[in-house]
Amino acid sequence: MSAPSAPPAIEIERVSFAYPDGTAALSEVNLTVAPGERVAVLGPNGSGKTTLVLHLNGILAPTSGRITIEGICVEPGSLAEVRRRVGVVFQDPDDQLFMPTVGQDVAFGPANLGLSGDALSRRVLGALDRVGLAGMQTRAPHHLSFGQRRRAALATVLSMDPNVLVFDEPSANLDPVARRELAELIVELGHTTVIVTHDLLYAAELCPRSVILDDHTIVADGPTAALLADSDLLGAHRLELPRCVTLSGLYPGG
């Protein structure tokens, strides 16, 4: 072994999770994400994608197994630090934007970290600026368009200065332009990124690597292009590319 390299950004080791009534949601999930990598987690509805997201910053604790973020084990004592490092952007921006104004909302996370005064407002203005919503801090969330709300939700997370970004269905309900703008923004930010989605084209656009989550566990892991070209694999897990794409011959096997 040479000099110690940086620890993986996310390391999920044999993680299982069952709800209190015994329903299994994850079983023996293994996934390692290197720093700076962008990985898509693909899977049909009900495969456990959102449950996996809630494990990445310790909202849910695994029934068995271990999750480490940049070498820090996710456990009750490390939750505050883990939640600073991992920013989760939820599927419905209205769940994430709950304060009366956008500025107050973006300030919520860093204020929980103990920031106040000038340092806090610098964070807020900086985060809004990075998502292209500069000057919107006094607006009420319901006065923003859906695309703006999704970017504001991203700003609420960026203001905590995270190293890892996790998106739950980022392309859901976006119009084509907002969808492209968000993709460009994610690439431009350059964080280690996990995108949980059943939008295969969005994954292809953004993530060189993908894993398929089905039946509560990871069933495939590889370059996104290779996974999408394997129509038998996709079909076996209730995933499929739009028909126009398969006809275009972009993914020959698909």
């Binding site: 809630l54 910053n57 909202i59 505050a80 939640r83 600073r84 920013g87 989760v88 939820f90 419905d92 209205d94 769940d95 994430q96 709950f98 304060m99 104004t101 500025g103 107050q104 300030a107 919520f108 996370g109 204020a111 929980n112 970290l113 106040s116 806090l120 407002s121 807020v124 006094t138 609420t156 997370v157 905590m160």
Partner: peptide, 25 residues
Amino acid sequence: ERGERLHAAMASRGFTGRFPTTAAP
């Protein structure tokens, strides 16, 4: 259910049951 999702979204941003003083207008 939205109340519960909110709850998770807040915990994700470091909320531990005490509301911070934010930059209110």
